[in-house]
Nucleic acid binder design. Sequence first.
DNA 1: TTGAAAGCGCTAACAA
DNA 2: TTGTTAGCGCTTTCAA
Lengths: 338, 338
Amino acid sequence: MDKVPTIKDVALLAKVHAATASRALNPNTRDMVSARTANRVIEAARTLGYAPNSAARSLRTRTSSVAGVIIPDLRNPMFPPIVRGIEDGLREAGYMALLGNTDGDSERERELLAAMRGRQTDGFILATSRREDPLPAEYGGRPVPTVLINRRSDADLPSVTPDNVMGVHATVALLAGLGHERIAHLAGPQELSTGWERYRAFLDAMAAHNLTVAPSRVAFSAGFTEEAGYRAAVALLDADTTSTAIVAGNDLIALGAYLALHQRGLRCPEDVSVVGFNDMPFLDRQRPALTSVRIPQYEIGTEAARLLLERIDNPTAPAKRVVLPVDVIQRDSTARPR
Amino acid sequence: MDKVPTIKDVALLAKVHAATASRALNPNTRDMVSARTANRVIEAARTLGYAPNSAARSLRTRTSSVAGVIIPDLRNPMFPPIVRGIEDGLREAGYMALLGNTDGDSERERELLAAMRGRQTDGFILATSRREDPLPAEYGGRPVPTVLINRRSDADLPSVTPDNVMGVHATVALLAGLGHERIAHLAGPQELSTGWERYRAFLDAMAAHNLTVAPSRVAFSAGFTEEAGYRAAVALLDADTTSTAIVAGNDLIALGAYLALHQRGLRCPEDVSVVGFNDMPFLDRQRPALTSVRIPQYEIGTEAARLLLERIDNPTAPAKRVVLPVDVIQRDSTARPR
DNA sequence: TTGAAAGCGCTAACAA
DNA sequence: TTGTTAGCGCTTTCAA
C-alpha cells in the first residue's frame, strides 16, 4: 500500500458503501449502523491504517477541530504556561491549536484572524484584545466562537481572567499591614483591561485603607515590559521621592523599577518595597526575590479551552466571565518602612 | 452579504469563469491571465472580502501551508524564542504552525504526528527526537518533509543545532584559563543528542587541555531539568569533593547544581565555579549570575523554518545540517580556583 | 439499516 | 488567454 487509504478503500474492504463506512467510523452516527457492520468497518479501517482526510471533512462540514490562539508574544513569560494549558484543554476534545503572535500590532492581528478563518478555524482564544476593541467576532454574518484571556474587552464575550481586583487589594493590604502609607503605583497601559482594572483596584484599595493617592505617586507605563516599566519608574522617582512602596502593574514593570531604584541608589526593600503581579517564573531568583501576585496561568489556559469548546457547541449561550483566584507570594522585596 | 464569498462569487462579479478567477488570484498562475482581467478579479475579490477556503484548496492540492511543530514542553524557557522564530519564518511564506507538546513521551509524539498528518500538515519541525529514533518521516510511502531542531537523530534529516562542540570547548577553555584543573561534568541524558554531544565534547576539550577526567567527576542527569540536575549534582558531590569547577549540560542542570552546592555549604564561585548552556532568559538575575553559552534561539527557529520550506519545495535534496555559532557569556559564577 | 447521489470550494488538465 | 469539465474525500440528504 503506497497510497494513503481513503474511506472508499475501507468501504471496499468491509464490503459496504462509503457512506456506511463513514457512518460507522463517526461516533455520532455509529448507531445508524448495525453493530456487526460497524465492527467490520472499524476493523477494515485499522488494517488499512486509515486516517480521515480532514480537508475533505472540513470542506464538507465547515468545521476543522482547530482553534486559533493569538497572543502578543510567546516570549513574554506569561504566555507559555497559558498556551500549554490551552493545548492540553483542547486536546481532550480532539482539537489542536494554531498559534500566532501580534507584537501588539492590531493590523497584524487582523491579518492573523483573517488567515486563520480562511483555514476554517472553529474558534479563537485571544489574549490581545484592547478594552474598547470593536470585536472581530463574526464572519460571514455568523458569530465566530471567541474567548478572551487575561484581558477583557467591552464586548459581550466569554473571558478568563485572574482576579485583578483581589490581587491588588491583597498587595495593598500587605503593604499597609507592614506600615506603609505613601504607596505609589506604576500602572500598566490603560487601554488594556489588565492595566486599567489594576489601576482602579489600586485606587479603591487605597481608599479602603484610608490612604490617599497623591497624583505624583502614580505613573503610567507605556507597556507591560521591563523597559517601559523602567521609564515609568524614572518618571515616578523624578516626581516623588517620598514613597516607601511601589505596586507595579506587572512583574516586568516591577523589574524595571528595580533598575530605576538601583540607579538612584535606593535599596529594595530597605528604602522602597516593590510588589509585582503575575508571579512569572524565576522571580524567586531575582535580587531581591520579588513579592508578587500568583495567577493560575495553566488553569487560565485550560479554562479558556473549556469555555471555547462550550461556545463552539452552543454559540448563543450567554457569555461566561470566569475570574480565577490569585495569591500573594511574599518574598524579599517587601519590608516595613524605615 | 451574509454568506462567506466563494471564488464563484468573485468570478461572477469580475465577469469571468471561476477557473480564471483562481488563476488570477494565485500568484503562481497569475501570468496565465491578462493583466487587465487579473486586476479586475483582484479588485472583485477585495470588494467582496474574499478569502479562499483552505479546506477546499487542501483537498485539491494536498497541501495546507501548515507545519507541525512538536516540542517537549513549551514551559521550558528554551522553546518560546525558538517557536517564535519558527512562526516568523513560516509566516513570510504564508505558512502557519500547529503546536504540540509531548512531555518527552514518544507515544504521545506518535499520536501527535498522526493527528497532524491527518490534518494535511505539509511538514514537521521536531525538537523531540532521540539519538537513535526510527524516523517517523514518511507517510503513505512518501517522505514527509521534516526538520530537527536542537537535537539530532541518526536519521539523514535536515537539522538546526547550536554548536555544542564549540560551546563546550569554549567553557572548558574559559575554566582552564582561570586555572581550573579538576573540572567536573554534569552531563545531560545520553539518549538525546544534546546531552551526548556535549559530553563527548567535554571529554575532548579536557584532553585538548591535557586535563584528566576522573570517572568520579562525571555524573549523568536523568533530564534537562533543575530537579534532575540537583540529584545529579548531589551524586557528584558525594563521589568527589575535590572539583573546583562544574560544566553543566544545560542551564537548568546548572541551577540544580547551585542548590546542591548551597546545601553542602559550598559557595559559587568561591569554592566551585559553574557554567551552564543555552543562556536562557533571566540567568543574569540568578545568584550568582550564571556564566553560560548563549545559543541563537530565535535564529534556530527561523533557520528551521527556512530549511523546512526548502525541503517542502524539494523533498529529495540532500539533508542540510545547519550548526549555528554560540558565545560564552561570562558572568559571576566563574572565578579562579582558590 | 444500507445504498445512491450530490456537492462542499477549489484547481489542474484539456479544449477552444 | 479563457472556459469547460472533472474530481480531490468526505458527509448528508433522500430513497429503497
